[in-house]
Design a protein around this nucleic acid. Structure first.
Lengths: 202, 202
DNA sequence: AACCTTTCTGTCATAGTGTGCCACAAGTCA
DNA sequence: TGACTTGTGGCACACTATGACAGAAAGGTT
């Protein structure tokens, strides 16, 4: 990893940390890009070279998780029921989260508090993921040998899986350590699996 | 209905129609508020008095449907399983849609095409509904006699219901008349109900 | 070291969304 | 008609976001 790349990574994290702290201190809406840029001593223009938008700061983790899900999904065995495969992909995200550094954990906990205080941002993350959700539905449809444009079940499978993940992330809203939260997310996933009729996703 | 109110309603619909047509002609992003305002001969300032944002134009129907759902939900019998009650609320939205005027149908079909071409807007509608989804979860939790903050199942019930509604709305993506589309949405709802284990939402 | 190339950064200009404020016009009612 | 309420337009302003360009920093070459 070159000096250049390391510096970029350091700047990116500095922006992210400054922003998360400012959001917690004075609220998401009340914090401007100018303030964030000022806190890390860069120009506002440079901010937008690291993050495509203000929202992007909050959706950073979401993007990461989503990418991980897609990758995991491609590696699942062909014969596996689609919903089960998706649940494994979600679990891969949980494992990744548990295995990250203490700094990452802190960022995750801060982010969770910010999302809790700004419900519209949770929807924003769905907004960002809408395209991916559609792509996932296409993967599932292909796997099931049906047409993604007309098969409702493929879309429903993905929508249910993402719902379970989202509910696990948001609820319960009590604070806690990262392992506690991922533990509860795992519970929600199992709850979702138990709620569905065996073989519904074939 | 006073002259004032009728005039307001007429202006609102004029704005909406002009905007939907412009979005279809030249795309959502490429259309500015100034253009929309110009097309109905009002000032941009006045536009924002009718719609809180550009997004709001597209989310207009969503807001309407959501409001209808909450109202329906309050009228459902106490003993009914929560998910069943939610499904009835969704059906109430479908009936309302089927019972509206030809103009409303045209707007709905245009909107559907716009949403199809701009996937991020679908997520936006979820973003807008995030708060309501939380409130619905609280209603469900109260109904089940549990604490909304800690009970994951209540949130999952609402999330699944909203997923089913969304999938029904988006998919299949073929065009069709309003009754065809609502018919397919009803199918998706039934599919969701069949996919779940009986008694899962008690 | 001096040099050139590539990449990053800041400045400036610009477009677009959204809001507060105030004067004025339109509608409502006595 | 006159008083009152509400809607409208114009203006200034804050904020997000992007394109263009010049200069600084990093990387490699001789």
């Amino acid at each position: 990893m070159s000096l250049r790349e390391r510096k970029k990574e350091r700047t990116r994290l500095a922006i992210l940390d400054a922003a998360l702290d400012l959001f917690l201190e004075q609220g998401y809406e009340s914090t401007t890009v100018e303030q964030i840029a000022g806190a890390v001593e860069i120009s506002p223009r440079t901010f937008f070279r690291y993050f495509t938008s203000k929202d992007h700061l909050v959706l950073w983790f979401h993007d990461h998780g989503e990418q991980l899900m897609v990758e995991t999904l491609r590696l699942r065995p062909q014969g596996e029921p689609p919903f089960t495969a998706l649940m494994h992909a979600v679990r891969a995200v949980l494992s990744d989260m548990e295995g990250s550094t203490e700094d990452e954990h802190q960022r995750f906990l801060k982010l969770r508090r910010i999302l809790d205080e700004n419900p519209q941002l949770i929807g924003q993350s769905v907004a960002r993921g809408a395209g991916t959700e559609r792509r996932l539905a296409e993967l599932v449809a292909a796997h099931r040998g049906v047409d993604a444009d007309t098969d409702q079940l493929s879309h429903l499978i993905v929508a249910f899986a993402m719902s379970a993940m989202r509910v696990g992330f948001e609820c319960p809203r009590r604070d806690g350590s990262v392992p506690e939260i991922t533990g509860r997310m795992a519970e929600t996933i199992e709850l979702a699996e138990r709620s569905l009729r065996p073989g519904w996703d074939l």
